[in-house]
Design a binder for these strands. Structure first.
Length: 225
DNA sequence: CACCAGGCAAGTA
DNA sequence: TACTTGCATGGT
């Protein structure tokens, strides 16, 4: 277990903000989400499901090469052709169907543009996204936060590992409970949620590869907490 | 060789 | 409600 940089007197909000400041200071802004357009961010969110971002980059590069990063073109494209193009991202048959499902939703219900989604109420948009085949909690929240800049905290496997390794949380480890823990204890701020999630991912990828293990973690103090 | 990666849906108990 | 399984490439 890691020793924290925090002290016993701090409440949860102060602890989380202290950790955030330390991570930001240590690693700098992570510049998430990479992607030129909202559509590219959304497709990236589907492609990265249980998949390393490196493989997703190859798939997206392929899509750009074939010039199909476009709602109308994707709408008419064969699912099998799309699957072939995104092959490096893995699970390509299922992900091709998921991308097509999202594109159909936009094309058939929203006139082929995602503009109308931007001004929608956040909870309403979240429910809409969750109703689309292939979009679960994490993908929906990633889209809300990183494509539409809504203040929604994204939870993933790294987030759970982070909480366990640092012994920050003793509630239920369900998606909803963990998300509520962060959102109840942090100011409602898109920039903070954006950067915090990206920093947790970077921290885990760099130092905390397993549970329980956190070698040379920057959050570790010299002395025992 | 095994195991993991910025999950989800469908099936089972 | 709470597991389990299939999906699949590419890197370590």
């Amino acid at each position: 277990m890691c020793y924290l940089i925090t002290s016993p007197g701090m409440n949860t909000r102060q602890t989380l903000l202290a950790i955030f400041d330390k991570l930001l200071d240590e690693f700098g802004k992570r510049n998430w989400w990479p992607g030129d357009t909202k559509l590219e961010i959304i497709i990236g969110a589907i492609l990265t499901q249980n998949t390393s971002w490196k493989n997703v980059e190859k798939a997206i590069l392929n899509m750009k090469k074939f010039n199909i990063l476009d709602i109308k073109k994707l709408y008419t494209l064969d699912t099998s052709t799309l699957a072939n193009i995104i092959k490096p991202a893995g699970f390509f048959n299922i992900k091709a169907q998921r991308i097509k499902a999202f594109i159909r939703f936009i094309y058939e219900e929203y006139g082929g543009t995602i503009k109308r989604l931007q001004n929608m109420d956040t909870q309403k948009l979240r429910e809409l996204l969750l109703s689309i085949y292939g979009i679960g909690y994490e993908t929906a929240d990633s889209i809300l936060l990183y494509a539409f800049n809504k203040p929604v905290f994204v939870v993933d496997g790294y987030t759970k590992r982070f909480l366990k390794n640092h012994n920050l949380y003793d509630g239920k480890f369900t998606y909803t409970d963990i998300q509520q823990y962060f959102m109840d204890n942090l100011p409602d701020n898109t920039y903070l949620f954006n950067e915090f999630h990206a920093l947790i991912v970077y921290l885990c990828q760099t130092y905390c590869k397993k549970i329980p293990l956190c070698n040379s973690c920057p959050l570790k103090n010299k002395r025992k907490a």
